[in-house]
């Protein structure tokens, strides 16, 4: 039976892991290669790098990061952040990334997703969606797509947008609840379930994980195909292995290593 995936996410700025990874026994917690290697050893099913480099001068550093990680860590690697052109995608894939996550560029130019999936195949194009609830208390729930870290509304309905992106060839949806991101109170399960039921491709739930039960809830109630988390793993609150054992004990099919 296909396992639900657990995906640690690393924010990378200028080639360094930020938001402080805190493994006590790692020599350099800012080194993406060391951190990726550790997650691989713990049994991560994939690793996602989010390039948050602000300066365009430093953009190439993520290419070197991907090259170094791909030469040593043999699980799927996804890279998001700043993917705007087919040339960006080509360079990432050549560096050793397996998938790229497209976010803002899909909103400003949806045809880009169509072009990218035609050229590189759906299997390597992930569309990242940042959604926020816009319906009020007691109303039928509605979510819209936001950009700029959840500050800028686009007016796009999240469910309709996810469906459009899948029509355009997206092979996977990386769904982040901007209401929950950083809160540690769990995924937005209603949002996750709404998107997962609306599309035929896998959905990765993101935003809000604070404990291991949240991961189970994301799969069982949110119907997510994969769960992504950052801080609970970075601060070694839980190892990936602990997370998987907990999920297995609670009836979730996972890859135990």
């Amino acid at each position: 039976m296909l396992a639900r995936r657990i995906i640690p996410c690393l924010d990378v700025d200028g080639g360094r892991v930020v938001k402080g990874v805190r493994f006590v026994d790692i020599r350099d917690a800012g080194d993406p290669v060391e951190v990726a290697r550790r997650y691989n050893e713990e049994g991560a099913d994939e690793i996602t790098f989010l390039d948050i480099t602000a300066s365009s001068d430093d953009r190439d550093t993520i290419i070197h990061v991907v090259e170094q990680v791909a030469a040593q860590v043999f699980i799927p690697l996804t890279v998001g952040g700043g993917i705007r052109t087919c040339e960006d995608i080509r360079r990432m894939l050549n560096a050793g990334a397996d998938k790229v996550a497209i976010n803002t560029a899909a909103i400003s130019n949806p045809e880009f997703v169509l072009e990218a999936t035609r050229r590189f195949g759906s299997q390597c194009i992930v569309v990242a969606i940042d959604a926020k609830q816009v319906s009020g208390e007691g109303e039928f729930p509605r979510w819209e797509i936001f950009t700029h870290g959840g500050r800028k509304p686009t007016g796009l309905d999240a469910v309709a947008w996810a469906q459009q992106m899948v029509e355009y060839g997206a092979g996977e949806i990386l769904l982040t609840s901007m209401d929950r991101d950083g809160t540690k109170i769990g995924f937005d399960l209603a949002l996750t379930r709404a998107i997962s039921q609306a599309v035929s491709v896998p959905v990765i739930a993101s935003g809000g994980v604070g404990n291991l039960q949240h991961l189970v809830d994301g799969v069982q109630e949110g119907e997510a195909d994969a769960v992504l988390a950052a801080s609970i793993f970075h601060f070694a609150e839980y190892s990936i292995g602990e997370a998987k054992r907990y999920m297995a004990e609670h009836g979730v099919e996972v890859r135990l290593t």
Partner: peptide
């Protein structure tokens, strides 16, 4: 085939992930 079920839930295609 479309609409394959596993544990009462529709399987997503592509199959993406770790299987036995």
């Amino acid at each position: 085939p479309p609409n394959m079920l596993q544990g009462g839930r529709r399987l997503k295609i592509p199959q993406m992930g770790w299987n036995q």
